[in-house]
């Protein structure tokens, strides 16, 4: 019964996120990019387009505001889905890959909404941030879906809420940071049509978002790995055993450590650091899908069979 509600909330959340994406995309389409004024140096360039742009800009701003509110609604539905799942199964709702992805994407959405309050200039990145979230949730809700049920004895430990929640939240943060770095490269590179690139936040804003999210994500991710080691010591007889999941988590940690070092190295601060962040995100995604589904290891809890 509750499990059914959880599923409905989940589907509703995805739909609402898509709506938020559409609103944001519409908001950006409504804002015309500044036309370069090459001739007529006499008059101020703002004079002419200002009159006709005014209403479009107002509509755009309204759509963008609505987009944020709708995303908040989506996050509430998403949270309801997670809580209902936990109540339905009478355990912490992080026992298989579907639930894990649900928690990661929820963390990513909340991160994004918090970031919007801190760096309002980042708002025009919304469609690009919501896109991977919607894709992940769709995958989680279809191919990786697992019906509500109990988990194996090894997963019944108070370390599950600690370790897996910390991993899920830090993964959500790292997704937002990684997407910001991807957008940073698109924005500062030349491969993207100007019409799209110019509607994104400035490269500087995107770089700041990537870094500010990272300085929260990295310590949390470190904590999650340490908590995992403490749990492994009680469950598997050793705190670290180079299980494939552990190994790739270590690789990702090293890459993110490299990102932070790059931020302090002349010549690596922005562009190259962004590439490192993307390498880190790729490793995390690889760890989520490939290691869970293809490589056999102790962490094979995906529940997909």
């Amino acid at each position: 019964m509750l499990a059914q509600y959880s599923d409905w909330f989940y589907i509703a959340a995805v739909a609402v996120y898509v709506l938020a994406m559409v609103l944001h995309a519409y908001a950006q389409a409504a804002v015309r990019t500044r036309r370069p004024v090459l001739v007529g140096a006499g008059g101020t360039p703002a004079d002419i387009p200002a009159a006709e742009e005014q209403p479009a800009r107002a509509v755009g701003a309204r759509a963008a505001n609505m987009g944020v509110s709708v995303a908040v609604l989506g996050a509430l539905l998403h949270l309801a889905s997670i809580v209902a799942r936990g109540l339905a199964t009478e355990r912490w709702p992080l026992g298989n890959m579907y639930e894990f992805i649900s928690m990661i994407t929820f963390a990513a959405v909340v991160t994004w909404l918090v970031m919007l309050r801190r760096v309002p200039a980042a708002r025009s990145a919304a469609p690009w941030v919501l896109l991977p979230i919607v894709v992940l949730m769709t995958l989680g809700g279809t191919a990786l879906y697992t019906a509500a049920g109990p988990v194996m004895p090894a997963l019944r430990s108070y370390w599950l809420p600690v370790h897996v929640t910390a991993i899920a939240i830090s993964s959500g943060l790292l997704i937002v940071s990684g997407v910001a770095s991807i957008l940073f490269l698109l924005r500062s590179g030349s491969g993207v049509p100007a019409a799209i690139a110019e509607r994104m936040p400035t490269a500087d804003v995107l770089d700041r978002v990537a870094y500010r999210v990272m300085i929260v994500a990295f310590p949390l991710y470190t904590f999650a790995v340490v908590a995992g080691a403490v749990w492994a010591e009680a469950a598997w007889g050793r705190f670290w055993g180079w299980d494939p999941k552990e190994t790739v988590a270590f690789v990702a940690w090293v890459i993110y450590a490299a990102y932070l070092h790059a931020r302090a190295t002349a010549g690596w601060r922005t562009g190259r650091a962004a590439w490192i962040n993307i390498a880190g995100l790729t490793t995390m995604i690889f760890n989520l899908f490939f290691i869970n589904l293809v490589v056999a290891g102790l962490h094979s809890y995906a529940g997909v069979g």
Binding site: T247, I255, A258, A262, T265, W268
Partner: peptide, 18 residues
């Protein structure tokens, strides 16, 4: 810069282990 390179090497070297 060397620290960066070594971190990359460490990441790449650990991958075959997984």
């Amino acid at each position: 810069r060397t620290a960066l390179v070594l971190l990359f090497l460490l990441a790449v070297a650990a991958l075959p282990g997984a």
